[in-house]
Amino acid sequence: MRILPNGDRALLVELPGQEAMLGLYTALAAAPPPGVTDVVPAARTLTLLLGPSADPVRIAAAVRGARPGAAAGSAAAVEVPVVYDGPDLADVAARTGLTPGEVVAAHTGTPWRVAFTGFAPGFGYLDGGDPRLDVPRRGTPRVRVPAGAVGLAGRFSGVYPVDSPGGWQLIGRTEAVLWDLDRDPPALLRPGVEVRFVRREP
């Protein structure tokens, strides 16, 4: 673990990998050290946002002494039904050397996990899927990707929570509601949550 100052109101905590990140995230989110106003999970780091009266020395010591918690795990698993008719499905098949049916089988065959969020409220970067599905972003992002579009980029999969611009390769769509302000919490996908995609007929 390495802790770096990130300006005067944040600390950047570098961790060896995603497991360590999720473990420490779970511990700090459950019991944030005094003065920490938010914990931002990312690929291999946590960013701790500090309030005006925070003591960085004490917080850094608390982070070093924190016992990693168990990630949300199977207790928080969600099933996302997907109609696999995305505009980039054929392109993803061509890039991966799979048939479209094999892309679908790969996407549904392995559980994914929300590594971190960002980009938009309710957008989760899903990791841990079938490694054959590693495809680059589209060369030219789309101006509008509809809410519910299911995409791939790098080793990640994700579902667009609201209509937005986006450059991920779209392989399908879901009617699952990723973001709902009348729900508590509003986001379906949160760091550590396991996600299983299930094929649905159109």
Partner: peptide, 11 residues
């Protein structure tokens, strides 16, 4: 609105 980064929500 600090405290919602894990939902993808900024301050």
């Amino acid at each position: 609105r600090p405290g919602h980064a894990a939902l993808g929500v900024g301050v």
